[in-house]
Write a protein that binds this DNA or RNA. Structure first.
Length: 429
RNA sequence: GUGAUCGUAGCUCAGGCGGUUAGAGCGCCAGGUUGUGGCCCUGGAGGUCGGGGGUUCAAGUCCCCUCGGUCACCCCA
C-alpha cells in the first residue's frame, strides 16, 4: 500500500457500498433500524454509557479470573488511574443504574444498548478486537417472565430479520450455595483424572472448574460424560423458576434445547443462562448469550443483590448470519426520488435552489457538484437509481420550466419551477 | 497468546524452472451522439507487485525479517 496508515489489527471501517456485509453502512443502518423498532415494541429504552470505564469496575464486575479480564483487556494508565476500553456492557449499565439511582423510576427497568466493545484477542471469523454488541437488560425483578421476555425478544428479532437455523440452548446454574456444592462435586470427580487433563483445565480445576464443562478437547469430553450434572444440585427456588421459564417460552412456541454443560464465561451469571447459536458463520457460532446476574450489583458497590437478567448479542455475527442466509442483498443501495442535472452557470444556481426546496419537502435529492456533461450526469442519475431526473440548462432557466424525465420510461415533460415539488411529490409516493 | 495460509490496479484475479516498457475482466473518467442514462464501440487514468533487507549480471518470482488479511486453536458476542 502506498498509504502508510492502515486501520489497527482486528478493527475495520464501515463505509457505503463495502463488499463485505460486515463493513457495509447500508446493512448496519438497516439492522440498527430493525433493532430500534423491536426494542420499542417491547418497551425497552436505549441507554448509552462511555466507551471508557475504570478498570476496577470491569475487573470486579466481570471477574478477575475470567479470560476477558485476565488476558483480553485493552487497559492503560493515565495519571493515577487505570482505564479500559469496555469489553462488554452489562457491568457499565449496572454501574449507571446504581450511580443514577434508576431504581427510583417507576416499576421494572428495561434497557437496551448497541455499541462498540473491545477485546484483545486474535481476530478470526466472527471475532474482532473492536466489535459491536447490542443487548437488553431487565433490572429489578426475579420474575421468570423477565427471563422469558428477553428470550422472546431475541427470537422475534431473528424472525423479523428472517434468520433461520438458530438453536436456543438453556440451563440453570442455581444459587450460590448450589453452585458451590456442585463445584465441589465436580472437582471431586475430576481430580482423579487430573493427569489426563490439559494444562488449561488443570489450572481451572482450582480457579474456575465449571469452565471445564465446555471444553472442546475430545478426551476431556469423554471424561466428562460421567461427571455429575449441575441439574442434580439445583436449589428448589431455581428449579421452580427454571420450570416456569421453560413453560412460558414453550407457551409462545419458542423451541429450546436444555444443555446442562452450558456455563457462561463471566462470573456474574447465576440461575438461568442461555445462548443462541447459528450454523454457517464459522467456529464462533454464538449469536447471543445471556442470563441472570443478580450478584453483579453488590460486586460493584450495591448494598444488596439486585435481580437482573439480560443478554448480549454480536452485531457482526448477526450480519454474518444474514449474509450466509442471503438476507443482505435488498439493503444495498439508496434510492433517490430525483436527481438534478444542471448544465451552465445560471443553471447551477437555479439547481441549487430547486434542490433546497425539494429537500424541505422531504424528497430524496441527488446532484453532482462538478461541471460535468449532461450525459455524464444522466449516467449518475441512472446509477443512483433515481425515479426522476430534473434537467436544468440555459433553455430551462430562460423558459422558467424544468425538464422532468421519468427514468424508467424515458418520457419527458416540461414543468414550471413553481410546480416542480407538487409534480414530483404526487408521482413518487 | 499458539498454529496454518495468503498479500500483484478501486474490486476479482492471470503472471510455466528468476530474463525487455507487469496484464485481463469489472469499476472509474472521457469520447463516439455540439442538451439525454441503461446496451455497444474507442481511448485514458490508475501499480515503488504489503514494507524492509539479502542472494544474483538480473527478483513480482528465491531467502530472511516485518506489517497486515484470512482461518483454526483458545475464548466468547
Amino acid at each position: 500500500m502506498k498509504n502508510s496508515f492502515q486501520n489497527i489489527e482486528g478493527t475495520f471501517d464501515i463505509y457505503p457500498g463495502a463488499q463485505r456485509a460486515t463493513e457495509c453502512t447500508e446493512i448496519w443502518s438497516y439492522l440498527e433500524g430493525i433493532i430500534d423498532e423491536m426494542m420499542a415494541n417491547y418497551g425497552y429504552s436505549e441507554i448509552r454509557t462511555p466507551t471508557l470505564e475504570h478498570t476496577g469496575l470491569i475487573a470486579r464486575g466481570v471477574g478477575q479470573t475470567t479470560d476477558i479480564v485476565s488476558k483480553e483487556m485493552f487497559a492503560f494508565e493515565r495519571g493515577n488511574h487505570s482505564y479500559v476500553l469496555r469489553p462488554e456492557m452489562t457491568a457499565p449499565i449496572m454501574r449507571a443504574y446504581l450511580q443514577h439511582h434508576l431504581d427510583q423510576n417507576p416499576g421494572v427497568q428495561r434497557y437496551y444498548y448497541i455499541g462498540p466493545c473491545f477485546r484483545a484477542e486474535r481476530p478470526q471469523k466472527g471475532r474482532y478486537r473492536q466489535f459491536h454488541q447490542f443487548g437488553a437488560e431487565v433490572i429489578g425483578t426475579d420474575d421468570p417472565r423477565a427471563d422469558a421476555e428477553v428470550i422472546a425478544l431475541m427470537t422475534d428479532l431473528y424472525q423479523v430479520l428472517g434468520i433461520g437455523d438458530t438453536t436456543l440452548k438453556i440451563n440453570t446454574l442455581g444459587n450460590a450455595e448450589a453452585r458451590a456444592t456442585y463445584r465441589d462435586a465436580l472437582v471431586g470427580y475430576l481430580t482423579p483424572f487430573a493427569e489426563q487433563l490439559t494444562q488449561i483445565s488443570r489450572d481451572r480445576l482450582s480457579q474456575n472448574p465449571l469452565r471445564i464443562l465446555d471444553t472442546k478437547v475430545e478426551a476431556e469430553r469423554v471424561i466428562l460424560e460421567n461427571a455429575p450434572l449441575i441439574t442434580e444440585y439445583i436449589d428448589e427456588e431455581s428449579a421452580i423458576n427454571y420450570e416456569s421459564i421453560k413453560r412460558l417460552i414453550s407457551s409462545v412456541g419458542i423451541p429450546f434445547v436444555e444443555d446442562p454443560m452450558l456455563v457462561r464465561g463471566l462470573d456474574y451469571y447465576s440461575h438461568f443462562t442461555f445462548e443462541f447459536e447459528v450454523k454457517g458463520i464459522g467456529a464462533q457460532n454464538a449469536l447471543a448469550g445471556g442470563g441472570r446476574y443478580d450478584s453483579l450489583a453488590p460486586e460493584i458497590g450495591a448494598k444488596a443483590a439486585i435481580p437482573a437478567i439480560g443478554f448480549a448479542a454480536g452485531v457482526e455475527r448477526l450480519i454474518l448470519a444474514m449474509e450466509n442466509q442471503d438476507l443482505c442483498k435488498e439493503h444495498g443501495s439508496v434510492k433517490y426520488d430525483v436527481w438534478i442535472i444542471a448544465v451552465g452557470d445560471m443553471a447551477h444556481e437555479k439547481a441549487f435552489q430547486v434542490a433546497s426546496q425539494m429537500r424541505k419537502s422531504h424528497l430524496r435529492v441527488g446532484m453532482e457538484l462538478g461541471h460535468r456533461s449532461m450525459k455524464a450526469q444522466l449516467r449518475l442519475a441512472n446509477r443512483a437509481n433515481s425515479t426522476f431526473a430534473i434537467i436544468i440548462g440555459d433553455q430551462e432557466v430562460k423558459a422558467d420550466r424544468a425538464t422532468v424525465k421519468d427514468m424508467e420510461t424515458g418520457q419527458e415533460q416540461e414543468v414550471f419551477f413553481s410546480d416542480l415539488v407538487e409534480r414530483i411529490t404526487k408521482s413518487s409516493t
